[in-house]
Nucleic acid binder design. Structure first.
Length: 389
DNA sequence: ACATGCGCACACC
DNA sequence: GGTGTGCGCATGT
């Protein structure tokens, strides 16, 4: 996806919307062509890419296809009081919360899919403790077909089988209504996250099970996980690992699980010794500027300190905010701090989370995600892959 | 011919 | 009542 097209297409959609014209394919392509001289087919293919990455939503509104700027749709529908409080607002990431089983992907797409899944789990994380708020892709699809009676768009027509609601989601789910943007409007999700496309039943089954069951399944297979409890982060890691789309090694998951445990309770030490007491140490890493006089010896603190600085997984909320500030976005750093984004959360963020979940302006949000968050995520998981493979 | 502006009706919350 | 949406028509280029 070339960056100009993103701006051109989103700009066209916004422009069409502002003059009360339906932002359909025809109008979007025409406008992009007229303004930028872009080829019609190219615009269409770029639009499809935007739809796949959920920057643009393809909707069926009042019987015709229309397109939405995802950032504006979510922001627009959000009630002011909700944007201020901590209540989890259904996000695009949530909509794909049920997706998994991406199937075989080529090398180029692998990382993108991994990122999608990462943010998917991020969405799951933030809503895990609010049963009923966890949105479901399945619900979305069921909604699309059942309520609106509208068939899937041509874009999704390669996957023509009817979406089958998964056991994990129900049409009676409270999220069903919460997800509804409009009774006439059916958000059409890309092929690779349509439930009906889920063929890898093994990983799907795992991912769609409740968190505790997922974990216990893995615990039965690997004693290393026997001390783990279900936490948002550990479950995110489990999901990534279980789908084989992200090279998260099992013992890394154990590490993550225990880090979570250490954070959760002040009680006894984790069953597996963890080199880092995350919260305190992370704070020190950014606030303690004075060199430690240790008589010329490298003590453990320095090692840990360097490790923390290098590994975003170990960043605290303050560390993340400092990082965002340091790369030139002090204003947006506040949003990260407000939303309590620590290193783990940062590594789990998806484009839509950054664009819409933080209530920051689209321009900086795009830059932050593309130039920093994505880079951190990529390097982090590549490092893991090298270390543990 | 095509782009743009906008009144109005409709639907949802 | 507020908001989002877009049809259909008028006007501008």
């Amino acid at each position: 996806m070339s960056e100009p097209y993103r701006e051109w297409i989103l700009g066209s959609i916004d422009s069409l919307r502002s003059r009360k014209a339906r932002p359909d394919l025809d109008r979007i392509c025409r406008m992009v062509k007229r303004r930028h001289g872009s080829d019609w087919d190219r615009t269409r293919s770029e639009l499809e890419k935007l739809i796949e990455e959920q920057t643009v939503l393809k909707v069926n509104y009042k019987g015709s296809v229309s397109y939405r700027n995802a950032a504006k749709v979510l922001r627009g529908r959000r009630r002011p009081e909700q944007s201020k409080c901590a209540v989890k607002q259904p996000s695009l990431a949530d909509w794909s919360a049920g997706d998994s089983a991406l199937g075989p992907v080529d090398e180029e797409d692998h990382m993108e899919d991994m990122e999608d899944e990462m943010s998917t789990t991020a969405g799951m994380d933030s809503s895990m403790d609010e049963e009923g708020d966890e949105s479901s892709l399945d619900a979305m699809c069921a909604q699309s077909t059942a309520d609106s009676g509208i068939s899937m768009s041509p874009i999704t027509s390669s996957n023509t089988s009817q979406p089958v609601p998964s056991p994990a989601s129900s049409k009676n789910s409270p999220t069903h209504d919460a997800l509804r943007q409009d009774t006439d409007s059916a958000y059409i999700l890309p092929d690779h996250i349509q439930p009906a496309a889920q063929q890898d039943t093994g990983s799907v089954a795992l991912v769609q099970q409740p968190a505790a069951i997922c974990l216990s399944t893995l615990q039965a297979e690997d004693p290393l996980l026997s001390h783990c409890t279900v936490t948002p982060v550990s479950m995110s890691a489990l999901r990534l690992q279980s789908q084989h789309i992200c090279p998260v090694p099992l013992h890394h998951i154990v590490s993550v699980c225990h880090q979570d445990e250490a954070l959760k309770s002040d009680g006894g030490p984790p069953a597996v010794p963890d080199p880092v007491e995350e919260g305190d140490m992370c704070t020190k890493s950014t606030t303690e500027e004075e060199p430690v006089n240790n008589g010329g010896m490298n003590n453990g603190n320095d090692v840990v300190k360097r490790e923390i600085e290098q590994d975003p997984l170990l960043w605290s909320v303050a560390d993340v905010a400092s990082y965002i500030t340091s790369v030139g976005f002090p204003e947006q750093a506040l949003a990260f701090r407000t939303q309590e984004i620590d290193g783990k959360s940062l590594l789990l963020m998806q484009r839509s989370d950054v664009l819409t979940g933080l209530s920051i302006r689209l321009g900086p949000a795009l830059k932050i995600y593309e130039n920093h968050v994505k880079v951190l995520q990529r390097s982090h998981f590549q490092d893991d892959s090298r270390l543990f493979s």
